[in-house]
Each structure stands twice: as C-alpha cells, then as structure tokens.
C-alpha cells in the first residue's frame, strides 16, 4: 500500500511535465524573439504578432501569451492534485488539497457569509492565477500582472459580478441607490461605482510594475557601481559586474514574492467584500417573498 502511493504513475509524470512545460516554452519564446538590446531599458510587453481585424488590428502581446501559459500550468496542477482522490484521505497530495479547499472555504464563509459559499472556487482561481502570474517573473518571464490590460480584464469581470448581485434587489432599488443620501450626490455615486474596478486594476498592476521598475533601476545602478569600483581589474575580469550577483535577489524577495502574493490576496479580498457588500440582502428577501405570494395567489386562482 505504502509503496504504491509513493510511486508516481505515468500520468502523474505527464501532468508534472505539463505543469513545467508552459514556463519553459515561455522562456524559449522570449529568448527567440528578444531583440539585441544595449544596456538597460524599461519597456512594455513585447508584441509577438498582430491579427488583422476589421476595426483595429489585434496585437498578441507577451503578457497575453504568458497569462495563457500560466493558465495551462494551473490546469495541469489542478489535474495533478486531484488525481486518485479517496473518501478517506491516504496520500499527502490529498491532505494538501483538502487543506487548501478548507482554507478557501473558510475565508469565503468568513467574509461573504453562507449565501455566497459557491464563490470559493472563483476566489481560489483568482488567487492562484494572480499569484502564479506575479511569481512567473522569478523565471525571467514578463509577469502578465504588470500589464494593465490583463488586470483590467479581471477587474471588469469582478465589476460585472458586483453589478449582477446588486441588481438582485430589483432595477428600481439599484437606481435608487445612486441618489442616496441626497439626489445631488448622483454624479459622485456614479463616479464611485466606476472607480471600484479602476482602483482594483491600478492597485494590482502598479504594485507589480513598480517592483520590476525598481529592480531594473537597482540592476543598472549596481552595474555602474561595479564598473566604477572594480574596473581596474585586468582584462575581461573588469567587465563582469560582480556587484550584480546576489544583491538584486534580496530585493526580489520583497518586490516579487511578498508583493505578488500580497496583491493576489488583496484582489481576492476586495472581490469578496465588494460583491457581498453591494448585495442588498433585505430587499432580495422581500422580493423573494413577494414572488412566492404571487405564485401562491395564481395557484389559488387556477384552482
């Protein structure tokens, strides 16, 4: 029994390969298409190719490709983790999966309440996608979250969810919510409504981007410093930037690992709070009971 659970089957190996392969493919794609560059530059996502479209050409950028690669990797990870589940947990893998699911469900229950228990998979997906996207910069890939288009897409999705759950209280109640506390506040309320997705997108994107910009600036500074201090070394030794070894990694612990995971958590947290905070529970219950009453009356009329 024990030896069986330890051994990896062929499918497991295949899934592990499928987990790692997207990142390798991303690195290869980046190396192949990288233009010869001099020194250090800060640019946006590189455009791999453009698809001609009737109104405007659709550029396929590095960020889009990398986010799809991360998606494939997460998909393989999920398949790998949930393979061979049993009613009573035996393998380490299943214990880990159960721990993750319990944690996420606890988080959702704590912040959104029983009514939104179905949101747990969505929240887990947001956290995994965002964290892994930010962490992919550790492998030298362009992090998809430092492109505003990707994060704005997620924020718009969350905005649609918020509006959908606000509309559950009825269209009139939703429109009336804009004129509170007095009708003069209507423009400000509309602005506040739009500001939610904008601020979510900008917060996530700005944090990741600032990390990469600071990393590039520090690397450039260290290169200059090492050529100034160690330039007297003979031959090719003087051209190697020794100070660049190791020092940027310390910064990367904060800017890439901590900040990336933190922003994923905050994005998920704000999603939960906004969706459950905007939901008009009392009004929804009232409407539900009214509908029930109407149905009962109709049934009595028919009889």
């Amino acid at each position: 029994m024990k030896s069986k659970s330890r051994r990896l089957s062929a499918v497991d190996l295949l899934l592990i390969v499928l987990m790692i392969l997207p990142f390798v493919a991303g690195i290869v794609l980046k190396v192949l298409t990288a233009p010869p560059s001099e020194g250090i530059s800060i640019t946006g996502a590189r455009v791999y190719f453009t698809i001609p479209m009737p109104i405007q050409d659709l550029p396929i950028t590095e960020a889009q490709v990398n986010s799809v690669l991360v998606l494939i990797s997460i998909f393989a990870l999920c398949l790998f983790m949930t393979r061979g589940l049993k009613v009573k947990a035996e393998s380490k893998r299943q214990h880990a999966v159960e721990w993750i699911v319990e944690k996420v469900e606890g988080l959702v229950n704590e912040n959104m309440g029983e009514m939104f228990a179905g949101f747990a998979p969505f929240i887990a997906a947001i956290i995994a996608l965002s964290a892994l996207s930010s962490l992919s910069t550790l492998m030298g890939l362009y992090p998809p979250t430092s492109d505003i288009n990707i994060v704005a897409g997620w924020a718009i999705l969350v905005f649609i969810l918020i509006t959908y759950y606000k509309l559950k209280g009825g269209l009139l109640y939703y429109l009336k919510g804009f004129t509170e506390p007095i009708f003069v506040m209507t423009p400000l309320n509309i602005l506040g409504e739009i500001a939610t997705p904008v601020s979510m997108a900008f917060r996530h994107y700005g944090n990741v981007l600032s990390g990469s910009v600071i990393a590039v600036l520090i690397a450039a500074a260290l290169q200059g410093l090492s050529s100034l201090l160690l330039g007297w070394l003979p031959g090719a030794l003087g051209e190697i930037p020794f100070l660049q070894i190791g020092l940027p990694a310390i910064l990367s612990v904060y800017f890439d690992i901590f900040s990336g995971c933190m922003q994923a958590y905050i994005f998920a947290m704000l999603t939960m709070l906004n969706v459950s905070g905007g939901f008009p529970e009392d009004e929804y219950e009232k409407r539900k009971q009214k509908k029930l009453l109407k149905k009962q009356k109709k049934l009595q009329m028919n009889h």
Partner: peptide, 24 residues
C-alpha cells in the same frame, strides 16, 4: 494591518502610474 497598509498604498500607486506615464 498589512491588508490596510496595502489599501492605503493605492493613492501612492496612482501617482506612481502617472509618473511612469509622464516619463515613458
């Protein structure tokens, strides 16, 4: 506190985005 700090950071991030736009 960490959660609150990250949210309080937002306005700073806005100005950072505008600064980056202004430079690049």
């Amino acid at each position: 506190m960490i959660m609150g700090c990250a949210i309080a950071e937002t306005t700073g991030i806005y100005s950072l985005v505008i600064a980056i736009l202004l430079i690049f």
